[in-house]
Design a protein around this nucleic acid. Structure first.
Lengths: 349, 349
DNA sequence: TCGTAAACGGTAACCGGTTTCACTAAGGGC
DNA sequence: GCCCTTAGTGAAACCGGTTACCGTTTACGA
């Protein structure tokens, strides 16, 4: 069954396609009876205008692309949810481009990132938002920068919690260093002096910033972080379990662990409990991200909220302004927040 | 800067657009030098063919729509991840249409479902997959059936864990009743006789099937489920906490709780621990879904795996066949699996 | 009664690709 | 030498909308 088109409607209503188009978009006055006649036919045939054809000439598609590393990491659904809520009522739909989940090969991730960037561009999306992946690298490769820059000339690109020095893209980010400082200060106030830092990847900006936030805060109090207590690499629960295993096998143990994200923190918690430690009595743990599960673990996880959903919401707002042609500040910074739950406690005397 | 088109390339290469199109798709032989000349220009200008224009005439877009209730519920990212893995290498991209997250108004959810269905259809997606929402209702409304049926005539629709009697759509589902039976049998084997069933919504098929699975298994052993121990409504952690609160306030308490999903189970666990119970010593808990967190809670959650990622993968496979025009069995049923962890234990004498 | 602007609507160009059809030239079999 | 393929290419139609441009009516004030 061939789909009905404006031509079919026009013919049966004895008008031109232009008129049909006009009632569709009410972009010009149409006589009441004519309009009604056309509307009737539209309902009769359940006519749905072909968005491809429309977008082709209008040069806007109402489509946005979101590139992220792993939808399976609860942080991203949070971001997405904030984003979604903001765009869905404005008639936008978005492509979800997951570069890594179900397949943790970093090299593949990077090529997929490029593939998606191109695919989205060909599909004429109105904008692209990128989270994580290569834009989160401390030193993004020259090629990436030129690639993104090139695409960025054709379609607005927005970075969430990422940066591409030299590309000068719009971005919204949480102040990660401040977040880490908040966490470190909290631990210091509880009397902890021996703090480990675990997880993340040392080539990623977030890891570097968070680490430096903790180190700096310690140093301001005249304390140091032991080198052997800084453990990488990984952002998963499993890696967290491995880290705590390593720490517990050391002759001298920290009294608190700062984890690069909540997943790692959960792994640390799990490993610690398995090893017979009681949290927070024997070990304080603080995570980062405030994924929904952080509130539901036992004990509840003290963590830094990166304001995931607000990040998404803000990104969406910026997009609207960008698409509407408004001037927007290049960088928007959100404030992290320390969420104190039950996984941290004063050090025992 | 106007984007470059096949015409620009053709002109500069002194060929017709037809030839450019031919090298782009290599759909017909082109002389080697001509091809090279064109390829050079394509690289020079970073030419990206406009997918809208292409799709308009090809009548295939390489776009799929996924409608689900709440990306924030970890079950769905799992499904998505399986789906993604299967489609991404075939060049498909998909729209994520979240109908509920960040806004738990069921009425809104339903209108959004319709809106997305239409929007996706207008965007000429090659297929639509629906999970949850109205297609998960025990008695879907007449209107929904005709609506979906109508859309379904234009684009293939696939239901995951849902059904629309009368619409005869393709669907892939896990045998939910069997899953519940597995759980119940496990509890019976551990000696439990007093089992509560909490969570879900009584107008949803999954809730009805799972409940009946438990009830039936009990009855086969000559046991009954007490009416006052069957508690609804809700799929969230908070509702789980409320349910256990209610149960604990009753004069007679169950020794085990079957939860309609893992989120509820986590809530029950949390509430039980807060109330001073020890799990599984004082109370056995079994969930459903096997979300990633189930393995990471303390104690680890015994649960029924609905094979989320396999569900997604299978859906993707079916789509490929459907789009390729192959004949596909209407219904594919996956087997659930009991995952025994630490939240269930033999009843104490 | 006339002039002018607003209302109304049609024609055709346009968006940027793909594909059919027709044509030329070269190669191969007889 | 003739016919048939096949390689290589271009012109133009097509996909299904929107819109610039223009012509005809109609309403209304002078």
């Amino acid at each position: 069954m061939k789909p009905v088109t404006v031509y079919d409607i026009a013919k049966e209503a004895n008008v031109s396609v232009a008129t049909v188009s006009r009632v569709l978009n009410n972009t010009a006055p149409v006589k009441k009876e004519t309009r009604e006649r056309i509307m009737e036919l539209i309902n009769k045939y359940q006519f749905q205008p072909n968005a491809l054809a429309r977008s082709l000439i209008k040069k806007e598609t109402g489509m946005i692309g979101i590139i992220l590393p792993d939808i399976t990491n609860p942080f991203f659904p949070q971001v997405l949810s904030g984003f979604d809520r903001e765009v869905r009522n404005k008639g936008y739909t978005y492509f979800l481009c997951d570069t890594m989940s179900a397949d943790y090969d970093v090299a593949d991730q990077y090529v997929r990132e490029s593939q998606y960037l191109n695919a989205l561009c060909e599909k004429q999306v109105d904008g692209i938002v990128m989270i994580g992946g290569r834009v989160d690298l401390a030193k993004p490769s020259r090629e990436l920068v030129t690639e993104v820059l090139d695409i960025g000339k054709r379609v607005p690109i927005l970075l969430i919690n990422g940066d591409l020095p030299g590309a000068s893209l719009h971005r919204v980010a949480t102040d990660e260093r401040l977040g880490a400082e908040l966490a470190a200060r909290h631990l210091l106030e509880l009397g902890h002096r021996d703090i480990a830092i675990v997880g993340g990847y040392r080539n990623m900006r977030n890891t570097i910033q968070r680490t430096s936030g903790v180190v700096r805060t310690m140093e301001r109090s005249g304390l140091k972080v032991r080198k052997e207590w800084v453990l990488g690499e990984g952002f998963s629960v499993d890696s967290g379990e491995a880290f705590i295993g390593q720490l517990l096998s050391m002759p001298e143990r920290p009294t608190a662990v700062f984890c690069m994200n909540d997943l790692v923190a959960i792994g640390v918690l799990k490993g610690a409990v398995k090893a017979g430690l009681r949290v927070p009595r024997d070990l304080s743990i603080v995570g980062c991200d405030d994924i929904p599960f952080a509130a539901n673990s036992i004990p509840g996880l003290t963590t830094i909220s990166l304001k995931a959903s607000e990040l998404g919401r803000t990104a969406a707002e910026i997009f609207h302004k960008l698409i509407a042609g408004e001037k927007v500040r290049k960088t928007t910074v959100l404030q992290p927040e320390l969420i104190v739950r039950e996984s941290t406690a004063p050090i025992r005397a």
